[in-house]
Amino acid sequence: MLALTLTAELNGVTDLRSDDTEANPFYYSFRVQCTSCRETHPNWVNISRFESHEQSGSRGEANFVWRCKNCKREHSASVRNPPATYPHSSPPQRRNIIEFDCRGLEFTEFKSEGDWLATGLESNTKFSGIDLSEGEWFDYDEKAGEEVSIKDVKWEIRRA
């Protein structure tokens, strides 16, 4: 089991979460490594909890299936639960955002691509289209009359 964790400073917003619906799936982008031969896939791979791929040998389905080009073994990863929200806290605390059941592979690095959502802490304003690829985000909450931000975004992949 691997978990993607997040630590971030939320100012004026709470409940940060990926914009992830069946109609508009969120793709988590990772570097992946074979645990058998330690070969790292040369490209970023994308995983959606709404996609299923057949595993060879009638072993069922997984959200991500990969055959290592070096050792020729097939590996898989499946999303365990829907993604969690990241609440406002002071000081910021590390939280599991999403967990994966990985078989024969490890995720070694995460790249934030795609849109995130948040809610105004006091105003309940809905913020969408949040881009965390640069590690920070700034906006203005009209209802609250103040700037809101997400800063010091740190992603980590840990054993769950």
Rank of each mutant, 00 (worst) to 15 (best):
E54Y: 05
D152N: 15
W137H: 08
K151W: 09
I97S: 01
Q33W: 00
N63P: 04
S78W: 06
L6D: 03
T35W: 14
N124M: 12
C102Y: 10
P83D: 01
S48Y: 07
S29G: 02
G145V: 10
T7A: 05
E99T: 15
V153K: 04
D101A: 08
E22P: 09
G120H: 12
F50I: 06
R17T: 08
N124V: 02
G104E: 08
E113R: 13
G60A: 06
P42F: 09
D19Y: 13
L4A: 02
E99V: 13
C37E: 04
S18F: 10
N43I: 05
K126E: 07
E9G: 00
L2H: 07
N11L: 11
P83E: 00
L117A: 09
V13W: 15
P25V: 00
G104V: 12
C71T: 06
L2C: 01
A23L: 14
L4T: 11
D101C: 02
K72E: 11
S18R: 08
C68V: 11
T21Q: 10
S56H: 14
F26V: 02
V79Q: 12
K69F: 04
E74G: 12
L132Q: 07
T108D: 01
H53N: 04
D131R: 06
S90H: 06
V45A: 06
R38Y: 10
L132A: 05
E9D: 11
K154I: 00
T14Q: 04
R80T: 07
C102D: 09
C71G: 03
R59H: 10
K111E: 03
E51N: 15
V32P: 02
